[in-house]
Amino acid sequence: PEVGGAGQQKLKQARVLVIGAGGLGAPVLEYLAAAGVGTLGVVDDDTVSLSNLQRQVIHGTDTIGMLKTQSAEAAIARINPNISVETHTFRLTAENAPALV
């Protein structure tokens, strides 16, 4: 009720870029998706491994070996299929950051 319809529309129009879909990025993506942020960008160049699962909550055993960006995209779609996800499967650097942002 504190957000209201107008606030939810602002969230739907918002764009957030999350650097990393690991220990911190995974729950951030989960909460942003649940909140209804309209476009989520995910930057990560790693794959899901078994050792990630206890702390990277959006990945599961069925995503081991998958790119974290793809696994995150699938998890976001399960939470809120109305969100647009932009995946960037590379490491953020000083050279590519300006064009990405």
Rank of each mutant, 00 (worst) to 15 (best):
A75F: 06
P27A: 08
G38S: 03
E2D: 13
Q56C: 07
G22W: 00
D46Q: 08
A94Q: 13
I79F: 02
G5N: 10
T39S: 06
I83K: 01
D45S: 12
V28Y: 01
T93C: 13
T61Y: 02
A26Q: 05
T47N: 12
G60T: 15
I58E: 04
A99F: 05
L24S: 09
N80F: 01
V57H: 06
N96D: 12
A26E: 02
D44Q: 01
G23T: 12
A6W: 10
N52Q: 08
V18E: 07
S49G: 12
I76L: 08
E30R: 13
A34E: 02
V43L: 04
N52G: 05
V28A: 15
E86G: 04
L53C: 06
V16Q: 00
T89F: 07
G25I: 02
A75I: 06
V37Y: 01
G23F: 03
I19L: 14
K12E: 09
R78K: 15
A75S: 14
L53M: 07
A97S: 12
A34C: 05
A14R: 04
A94G: 15
S49K: 01
L40Y: 00
I19H: 04
I64S: 10
G36Q: 09
G41S: 07
P81T: 02
G5P: 12
I58Y: 06
A33S: 11
Q70T: 10
A14M: 07
